[in-house]
Design a protein around this nucleic acid. Structure first.
Lengths: 158, 158
DNA sequence: CCTTTCCGTTGCGATATGCAACCTACTATC
DNA sequence: GATAGTAGGTTGCATATCGCAACGGAAAGG
């Protein structure tokens, strides 16, 4: 097995590694943040993020390849191309929000702008947290890592 | 203000960028995954992840610098150094879990091992989701990006 | 002593990124 | 319909980061 294949295994043996293979490169998260905030066109991403054009091109291509963004011609202006989130891409919102809330709390020290609010109550969304199946908030002390097979044996024994 | 300028402001201050400066490099998330799974020693990280030793040294140093890991001598063996998560580091759990769940759902297609369970009910934890302040699950359609000052004006007007 | 283990560091080649210039469609203006 | 400008790239080249293997000091262990 080649070194590259070994690495791929290391990355892929866990959902985190699998996810990072797709969105773990530099700029990918920032491009996605832009997409969630309404950026659609190449030039918008480029000027707003200050990313190098070749890298932006590469990242957009990768995100499209992996089905996270959809690439369509702009019907209003045939020079333009629109990049938008697919469902797979939109489903990354919890990742982005967790990261953002952590950054606000521990690095920048203050909430950033704009705020994501409940459209109807106008209240900012709640902090992301880990919850039990029945909705209680869990801290690390309340949790345990269990091998999947051991867990199956437990439930069979019960 | 032009649309481009509006967008520039949107991105100027954001916790995501701040967070990525600290944990956005290659391997950082995987090292943290290891730490959450109980890895403590340099050699454990190295053999478990297959990461190059110089890079591992660099990343551990950065994570310690930023207060995400604590570096202590091992009282039982003075050759050894233990790296453990600080509170700031443990607070990254929602990020890691969101990423992992996304990877399981959209990339690897199956849950990975081991599973994080509620210590008492033995049930796997719930999927990470975005919630309103009063605990309802929100989808993107239920939410809206609002400028912080506009939001303040809204609440004053009400 | 002598060997092994642990946590790095160093040198060097390979890969990824940044920057500027260039290119091809298409659009807008006159 | 010639000219200029815009959108979305590509290409060449410099720099930064990464991966690998070899080496080193300090502490166990025998």
């Amino acid at each position: 097995m080649s070194r590259a294949e070994q690495l791929r295994e290391v990355f892929a043996e866990c959902g985190i590694g699998a996810a990072l293979e797709v969105v773990g490169e530099r700029w990918s998260f920032l491009i996605l943040r832009g997409a969630f905030n309404g950026l659609r066109h190449f030039e918008e991403f480029q000027t707003n993020l200050g990313i190098a054009r070749n890298i932006l091109s590469n990242r957009l291509g990768r995100l499209v390849e992996h089905g996270i963004l959809r690439r369509d011609p702009d019907p209003a202006d045939r020079r333009k191309v629109t990049y938008r989130l697919t469902e797979k891409g939109r489903d990354l919102l919890p990742v982005l929000l967790s990261l953002r809330q952590w950054g606000e709390r521990w690095i920048s020290g203050h909430p950033s702008n704009p705020v994501l609010v409940d459209r109807y109550t106008r209240q900012p969304i709640a902090p992301m947290m880990v919850q039990s199946a029945d909705g209680r908030e869990l801290s690390l002390r309340d949790m345990e890592w269990v091998d999947r097979e051991d867990l199956d044996r437990e439930s069979n024994a019960a």
